[in-house]
Nucleic acid binder design. Sequence first.
DNA 1: TGGAATGTTCGGCT
DNA 2: AAGCCGAACATTCC
Length: 262
Amino acid sequence: MPELPEVETVVRTLAPAIAGRRIESAQFTSKFVTPGDREALAANVAGRTVRGVRRHGKFILIELDEGSTLSVHLGMTGRLLVNSAKTAHTYGVFRLDDQSVLHYDDPRQFGRIEWSPARVARLGPDALGIPLEAFLIALRKRSSRIKPLLLNQSFLAGLGNIYVDEALFRAGIRPLAIASRVSRKRAMDLHAAIQELLTLAIAHGGSSISDYVDADGKKGGFQNLHQVYGREGEPCVRCGAPIRKTVVVQRGTHYCAKCQKS
DNA sequence: TGGAATGTTCGGCT
DNA sequence: AAGCCGAACATTCC
């Protein structure tokens, strides 16, 4: 479910529901989602008050008392839902002091709920708001292919498979182009494309491809505005040529062979 | 039935 | 040493 726009939408819908609330109790029931001592984690969370909810890349950071932070990564199919019905894949339950309940659901269990994990510290700058110059300098230093690089969360945090394909299309760059060899002009276009794309996607509540919903259970609408992702064989919105689909680093990759250059 | 799905990590190799 | 690649994690859906 989750790339930066979806995670941001979850944060925005979650924050008003839980900020200022005291967590009466927590319960975790998946050894994958909550590795290690689940009961200790639950005990640590219980009794604390939610000071705020933030995001870095695809991580949701729930700030608790005394500067402590609970991090939630939604993986592929994770959901944080306020006052939803429990399902067969509910692996986290938070009871709040206003009698509301926050559920963490995740069929594939690729998501993680952890206490200030080290991997948050290893994240690169957030994709939304990275300064142009910093982006240009970082790109010039890398000899790897542009798509894998943009998917690398320690390089840039927040983009995933959908938004990388969409951003590269908007900037006219092939997914396999070498990062350091992208012209300054196209690199500037890519930076602008990423900012515009993420901003627009957030305004539409994110993309609901299969089962993404926000904390209130509402779907996003940005999937209707995708220009290449999920449009294999359909005409390019710019030139009319059919959108192609290949595999790059084990991920489905969509692009227009005519509009995107190496 | 096999393959693909919005993600990340790890081991092995170069 | 850094970077690339494939496999693995668990489940659902077509």
